[in-house]
Design a protein around this nucleic acid. Structure first.
Length: 948
RNA sequence: GCAGGGGUACCCGAGCAUGGUCUAAGGGGUAGGGCUUAGGACCCUAUGACGCAGGUCUCCGCGAGUUCAAAUCUCGUCCCCUGCACCA
């Protein structure tokens, strides 16, 4: 580590040493521990990460936002509570342990790469060890490594005994408030492993992670002898158009007893039925498809007798294996009917614009479909007909009581009526095969008395929507979206029996509360966790009574420590910002709000939510470990430096867009960190010199940037804030130096403020610079700069504006004329023009501007009389632009500036950048050198130019 | 199906709520020049077209409309993306 007393060489900046040095000091002096001192508090946290293995650079984006906000708040007069923990519940750590257990080569390689010893790896077959191991990795290698001022005394996880007591209390509360309900539920289930998760990450399954659950309606067609021929459909309303049935002649169908009915269906179907229906009993009797063909059956509801025909497309593995035929509306059925050559009339039951007497036929004709084997085209035709009919179709007179109603409105009613009258039932099925990791086929199983949290509760929903109105939610779009999400958010199955981690559900033995439901009130637990961690309260003492007292203010304290904890809770709660990725928008955040509304007192409801988008791989692909993913965090920290990465996250895009990880880009930020380091070294070693106008300009623009930065932080517009601090300020400073500015005192102060500004974003760089500038103590503990109006000098701002315009104009002329200048003359506008211009601006601001009026007014002055023509030309010329000026420009142009004096001041600079002698005149000067009569083109803030 | 997001220059990406200062910030890339070199560096200039005096024309997915004025408002249209529940 470098010697802290001697500043580093001007050209070297050992960021790794700097990072270590300051992190060591911060944590040694515990500046990150939350304290109650300032009577103003700010509670921020990020949605704790699930313990699923090593994280990648994408995860650091949100964490970094959190730290920047927390650091900003602590510098602006708040006690900040920034805790963190681990979401250990659920499958991830179990899945990880399983991978280690089955010696998954990728997993083992990853562990070894990250320096995990063989002994350690052996331990990781236990999910609890996985949680323990990665908790350390997250804290030491990620969070501390990035300089986050997290209060590490509060670290907790969701499978600790104390947390479990907290969750049980939560569920007792929900139960008391009648928000726990029981009803049937259908969930993926593996015959040998039990419940499995079907999701895109494919933790539990080896195939079919993106399968959807389809909800078939099974219609009970009856044979002559009363046996039921169950046909499964996704369009129960088309029952009125059934003309026949399809059974596969090559399949042997099975008899099965369902309740008291006898069904005929495929063998695969029986298995599904047993998982989803009570009293399913296979009968040892089968019937060949061919034997069914030629028989007839009765269509339920309609009571029509229809024939059973041969259809090879009837797949025994799909639903019941028996298909009803609606040839007017289902292209498959139409083509099969044509191919069967049966003389059956299609029955049209849906009127829909754009189709005639047989939509299915017309769609088939349109796509040129000739055979049942053209499945791709048939699917397209089905899609086409279905979409059109669903949205614009109306059931016609053949549909009895439902005639005249839109499909989209009546579909569910038809279905429910049929089910109610025992003419139909349901069958759920995956849209594609789903295979468990154990190679078994995953089924859908009914859980008759599943416990749900009743998020559909009308009052809870309404109160939650009301709560959202007064919350600070970033981005605004999400605030607008949230009420709709809350409306749409349905009951959530809250428990599961299977091998995963979590809290035991108090009302059903051996069932575990699922991970979303156990992370809704958890920020409140951060208030308690330090007392648990320091053994100031035992798990045994954390009774419902304790939680009731601390959180709800109910009852009286049993111990002194209860009072202490409650006073902490009352000081810190509620949360000011809960920050999480966009994946939480429709999952975590709604339940976070709703549980607070349901359980916590009104004044403890959340104050704010901040949603950030993701870091993706090239091509907007989600970073995934399986695909190689982005760079590991520790490696990246070494390559780029932590401050560079922090700045990268802040500046590369708005928090509300996905950003693509690109190593080249991160390097640019690394360079910028280095440049700033050098620039500050450089400016404090300049030869002292003052230039009043220029110095005042620098002071003034700095305040503009301070103001913009504060405004941006005010709305957590982190990108704008970082842009001001790391780009705009630097740009101004460079202009100042280029102009020859070198006021030592000013530059010292400028550097001081600049370092303060950058502290929340690049704290290590800031601390190091702070120290080299000779300031004692931590800059992290300093007060953030405030806007100082007295430093604003509009006159000098406008002066520099004039100067840049002159340079631009000269360059423009040189470019067009391709001249090489020998001498450049600049003529500022005469006083009379400036007077008129100002008058015009004032009048325009007061909306009294009138060209004729102003000319008359001006010429009433006898001194102006001789200039009559010039005056009228000038006024006419400026009229349109004066009207269009913004308020900002108007006030800028109204400032009185001695243009000539300012330009003369800058003469050395002008001749330097223009590479030739420059002469400055005012149009009012008596001894003008103006061979080309350019003077008359001079306008206020737009001097005339003559180039030789 | 339900709910939501988005199309801006070579690329990324601001702007759009509150129309005018928008050829459209910032960053990157590219080209030319400087620095005679700080570490994958730094500085300047150019980067829609045209223009021999600081200007003109075109332009924000596509097509209309409102307006003195549209990237911004309205309507239509095409295309892309995300989530949908026991994965967090």
């Amino acid at each position: 580590m470098s010697n802290p007393k001697t500043p580093m060489e001007e050209t070297t900046y050992d960021y790794i040493a700097v990072e270590q040095k300051w992190q060591h000091r911060w944590f040694k002096e515990n500046i990150n521990t939350a304290t109650k001192e300032k009577q103003k508090k700010f509670f921020i946290h990020f949605a704790y990460p699930g313990v699923s293995g090593y994280l990648h650079v994408g995860h650091m984006r949100g964490f970094t936002y959190c730290d920047v906000i927390a650091r900003y708040k602590r510098m602006t007069g708040y006690d900040v509570l920034f805790p963190a923990g681990f979401h250990a519940s659920g499958i991830p750590s179990v899945g990880f342990a399983k991978k280690v257990e089955r010696q998954d080569p990728d997993t083992l390689r990853l562990l070894r790469q990250n320096g995990c010893t063989e002994e350690c790896i052996n331990n990781l077959t236990d999910p609890l060890e996985v949680v323990k191991y990665f908790s350390t990795v997250y804290v030491d290698d990620y969070w501390k490594r990035f300089g986050y001022l997290i209060d590490y005394t509060r670290v907790m996880n969701t499978i600790s005994d104390g947390y479990k007591k907290f969750i049980q209390w939560q569920f007792h509360q929900l139960h008391d408030k009648h928000l726990l309900i029981q009803k049937p539920h259908y969930a993926p289930f593996c015959p040998s492993c039990g419940p499995v998760a079907v999701d895109k990450s494919e933790t539990d399954v080896s195939q079919g992670g993106s399968a959807e659950i389809l909800d078939f309606t099974v219609l009970k067609f009856t044979l002559k002898d009363g046996t039921i021929l169950p046909a499964a459909t996704l369009r129960p309303e088309t029952i009125f158009g059934v003309t026949n049935m399809w059974v596969n002649p090559n399949v042997e169908y099975h008899f099965v007893k369902v309740n008291n009915e006898t069904w005929i269906c495929s063998e695969e179907c029986i298995k599904k039925l047993t998982y989803q229906h009570d009293l399913v009993q296979p009968l040892k009797k089968t019937i060949k498809g061919t034997e069914l063909i030629g028989k007839t059956c009765i269509v339920p509801e309609v009571n029509r007798e229809v024939p059973i025909l041969a259809g090879v497309f009837a797949d025994p593995s799909v639903a019941t294996g028996i298909v009803m035929s609606v040839p007017a509306h289902a292209p498959y059925d139409w083509i099969a009917l044509v191919e069967s050559k049966a003389s059956i009339e299609a029955i049209k039951i849906i009127d829909v614009k754009g189709f005639g007497s047989n939509p299915a036929k017309e769609a088939c004709d349109q796509l040129g479909i000739k055979s049942q084997t053209e499945t791709e085209k048939l699917n397209e035709a089905t899609d086409l007909v279905y979409k059109k009919e669903f949205h614009t179709g109306i059931l016609n007179e053949k549909c009895g009581q439902y005639a005249g109603i839109r499909i989209s409105e009546i579909k569910d009613t038809v279905k429910n009526n049929l089910i109610q009258r025992n003419l139909a039932t349901t069958l759920k099925e995956f849209s594609e095969p789903v295979i468990c990791r154990c190679k078994e086929k995953v089924m859908i199983k009914q859980i008759p008395d599943q416990w749900f949290i009743k998020y559909s509760d009308a009052q809870l929903t309404q109160e939650s929507k009301d709560a959202v109105l007064s919350m600070n939610i970033y981005p605004q779009e999400y605030k607008d979206e949230l009420p709709k999400i809350l409306d749409w958010f349905g009951d959530r199955a809250a428990i599961r029996r299977g091998s995963w981690l979590g809290t035991e559900f108090p009302y059903k033995k051996d069932w575990i509360i699922e991970p979303i439901s156990d992370s809704t009130l958890y920020p409140a637990y951060y208030i308690i966790s330090p007392y648990v961690n320091h053994k100031k309260i035992t798990v045994k003492e954390m009774t419902d009574e304790f939680f009731n007292y601390v959180f709800l203010g109910m009852g009286s304290p049993k111990q002194e420590i209860w009072k202490t904890i409650k006073s902490d809770f009352d000081y810190w709660y509620p949360v000011d910002i809960n920050l999480g990725g966009k994946e939480h928008k429709t999952v975590h955040f709604p339940v976070y709000i709703m549980n607070h509304v349901a359980i916590m007192p009104e004044q403890k409801r959340p104050h704010g939510i901040f949603v950030h988008w993701w870091v993706t791989q090239k091509g907007k692909e989600k970073i995934s470990k399986s695909k190689g993913g982005a760079e590991p965090i520790v490696e990246a920290a070494v390559t780029y430096g932590v401050d560079a990465m922090r700045l990268y996250y802040l500046h590369i895009g708005s928090p509300f867009v996905d950003i693509e990880w690109d190593p080249e880009t991160v390097l640019k930020y690394k360079n910028r960190i280095l440049n700033i380091w050098r620039l500050i070294q450089q400016i404090t070693s300049l030869e002292d010199a003052t230039q009043e106008n220029l110095d005042n300009w620098l002071k003034s623009t700095l305040q503009r940037h301070v103001q913009k930065t504060l405004d941006a932080f005010g709305t957590w517009d982190l990108r704008v804030a970082s842009n001001e601090i790391f780009f705009e300020i630097q740009k101004d400073l460079q202009w100042y130096l280029k102009r020859g500015g070198a006021d030592k005192k000013l530059l010292t102060e400028y550097a001081r403020i600049w370092i303060l500004l950058m502290t929340p974003i690049t704290p290590h760089l800031a601390e190091e610079l702070w120290e080299t500038q000779g300031y004692p103590s931590f800059v992290s503990n300093e007060v953030y700069p405030e806007f100082k109006l007295k430093d604003i000098s509009e006159k000098d701002e406008i002066g520099e504006y004039l100067l840049t315009r002159v340079v631009e104009d000269v360059n423009e002329i040189l470019k067009v004329t391709k001249m090489t200048p020998k001498k450049i003359c600049i003529y500022t506008s005469p006083a009379w023009k400036q007077n008129i211009y100002r008058k015009a601006l004032q009048q325009s601001a007061e909306k009294t501007f009138n060209v004729g009026q102003l000319i008359k007014e001006t010429l009433s002055d006898p001194m102006m009389k001789p200039l009559g023509q010039q005056v009228s030309q000038f006024v006419a010329k400026i009229a349109p632009e004066v009207k269009m000026l913004s308020d900002l420009d108007r006030s800028r142009f109204l400032i009185v500036l001695d243009e000539k004096a300012h330009l003369i001041d800058a003469k050395p600079y002008l001749s330097q950048v223009l590479h030739c002698p420059v002469e400055i005149y005012s149009a009012d000067d008596t001894d003008l050198y103006d061979p080309a009569k350019k003077t008359k083109f001079a306008y206020p803030l737009r001097p005339a130019i003559y180039i030789e």
